[in-house]
Design a protein around this nucleic acid. Structure first.
Lengths: 218, 218
DNA sequence: ACCTGATTGTGAAAAAAATAACAAAGATTA
DNA sequence: TAATCTTTGTTATTTTTTTCACAATCAGGT
């Protein structure tokens, strides 16, 4: 634990494959639970078994974070965890605005997990009088009109869209207009934004489709 | 609209690629919104543009559902929508049990979208006295002990896990023990189940990792 | 001091997915 | 009626991702 096992952070960073990026948070969660059980080291084959993938793939995924394993020992959990957290920027606070305080919006606002992974929702908005000015998870719900003002007062680059599906596009337009750099879209509706804006869609129906398809096959 | 444009449903079904399966619900939502705007036909190039992917890819995805497009016209929206719904089994009711009535669990219970896509949550369970016997979205919250009995009375193959992370594995074990065939795991924790059980993980941290990575690059 | 066997890490091969190229069909217009 | 031009749909190619094969390392035991 004395010498640094992490090297070449993101300097030699030949564009991480997206599948790798998507697996890393899963590893992280797994490693953290192992660490709570007082484990110190883990090998790629054990990880691979837990995730039902090939050990080589695990090795390659982990290599992107810069960690080095020790022959016959495996990877240090502590080092791995720190490296992945840093690599994924889960320790750097990123402010976010949330739009649409319905069931899902409320769930996200009350969810500790986002905070623990660097996302701080700094304000939330809605257009329904019934929720406006109520408080959810310690945050006042503002009318959408106030987004413009607040976006000037509070620095944030990320907008979370949890509106009804048919409001997704106009909300996205608004976010872009007031300077958001990234949009996390929880509606199944595809949204159109300028080239440079980062958009990531979280669409549970995609997962549902996979479940139903596999279920009917088996 | 008179002759059937849908043929070869899933007979000649050379295992649909998972990426295709995951894109289809997005198309469906898009088509439905277009239909509400009284559009009748759509071409692969327009779809491709909306989703920022290659038109050929759209064509191939749609071909799995058995729909045939018309040269110079495109695909009939009505036919497409019906074909995708049938293909993804969104019109066949699938009963589900939900475990863990926290923020996320409640949000899912109150969410109409699942019902509209064939998922009917028939009962929900928790272990905390504070929520047991309360009612959420018209469903009584049962103590986990009653799962065994209820699973015998109500036929269901799908279990939804929305417990805290550290309860995911034991919940999964219970689901398997009482005959669930598929598990939809909303915790980031990877779970270990017998070979034949279908598991799909919905892990928002995977999406978060992609956002943060793209955000820091740009 | 020397095996032994588990483990990392890398480069090659295979598989999967996306894109490109192109042929065929058929609305639409001249 | 013929020409044109958009669109589908198929086959080939390229790119991406995963898996395989194997060399190098080195803890732990003999």
């Amino acid at each position: 634990m004395s010498e640094p096992q992490v090297e070449a952070p993101n300097f030699i960073n030949p564009s991480v494959p997206e599948p790798t990026l998507r697996r890393l948070p899963g590893y992280l969660c797994y490693f953290q639970s192992l660490q709570q059980n007082h484990l110190k080291y883990i090998s790629s084959s054990v990880i691979a078994h837990a995730f039902k993938i090939d050990p080589t793939l695990v090795t390659k995924d982990l290599s992107y974070t810069g960690v080095k394993g020790r022959t016959k020992v495996g990877y240090s959990l502590e080092t791995l965890i720190e490296a992945i957290v840093q690599f994924l920027k889960f320790n750097q606070q990123e402010n976010a605005f949330l739009f649409g305080v319905g069931n899902l919006g409320k769930a996200l606002l009350q969810y500790d997990g986002l905070r623990q992974h660097g996302i701080k929702i700094v304000a939330c908005f809605d257009i329904h009088p019934k929720v406006i000015n109520t408080t959810v998870a310690g945050l006042k719900v503002y009318p959408l009109q106030e987004f413009r003002d607040l976006s000037r007062k509070i620095p944030a680059r990320l907008g979370v869209i949890t509106t009804p599906d048919n409001k997704a596009q106009e909300t996205a337009d608004l976010l872009v207009a007031w300077g958001m750099k990234a949009i996390w879209n929880f509606t199944p509706q595809s949204i159109k934004v300028p080239e440079k804006i980062v958009v990531v869609n979280t669409n549970i129906y995609a997962d549902l489709a996979v479940i139903l398809h596999r279920l009917k096959q088996s």
